[in-house]
């Protein structure tokens, strides 16, 4: 099947299997390995990417269903090599330890901050509850999100 899709602003036209997931397309076809997988059942959120600005778990997203739409992955977050506010806040606050949940966590944060410019701590916890982290206990991630929100405000 031929698919046309925009990922991080780049238009790709590729021949793929019809039932490919968005995750496999990103990692295996485009080589964008910044998006991680941890379960393939939608429970861990490590594979979170944005489709038209909304967060989805790419492991369960049929590629065919996002044809023609705008996909943003972790590789598309920085601006010409500079970390964006969310990424910088994760670095400064110790929001990444092993880093495996980090790309998904950052994508969920980007989606949250688009919808809610100044989320409360409990709103952040709810918004990130689909992104499991085993290292941080979430505190430093929440600090990072609060800081990024403050910087964008």
């Amino acid at each position: 099947m031929r698919i046309e899709i925009v990922v991080n602003g780049d238009r790709y036209v590729k021949e793929v299997m019809a039932d490919l997931s968005l995750l496999d397309f990103l990692r295996e076809v485009l080589g964008l390995t910044g998006t991680k997988w941890g379960c393939l059942t939608g429970d861990c959120g490590a594979c979170t990417v944005l489709v038209d600005g909304e967060p989805v778990v790419s492991c369960l997203q049929l590629l065919r269903q996002v044809e023609g739409r705008d996909v943003t992955t972790i590789e598309g977050v920085e601006h010409s090599g500079e970390l964006d506010e969310v990424q910088a806040a994760f670095v400064a606050n110790g929001g990444a330890q092993c880093g495996f949940c980090t790309p998904g966590m950052i994508m969920s944060t980007e989606a949250l901050l688009r919808a809610n410019r100044s989320p409360s701590e409990s709103q952040i916890r709810e918004a990130l509850s689909g992104n499991l982290c085993r290292c941080t206990g979430y505190s430093k991630i929440i600090d990072a999100v609060l800081q990024a929100a403050a910087e964008r405000a």
């Binding site: 939608g42 959120g45 969920s108 918004a127 509850s129 689909g130 992104n131």
Partner: peptide, 12 residues
């Protein structure tokens, strides 16, 4: 609705 899965799951 808000108890179902995560934001990502609910979006899909």
């Amino acid at each position: 609705a808000r108890l179902l899965g995560s934001v990502q799951i609910r979006t899909m």
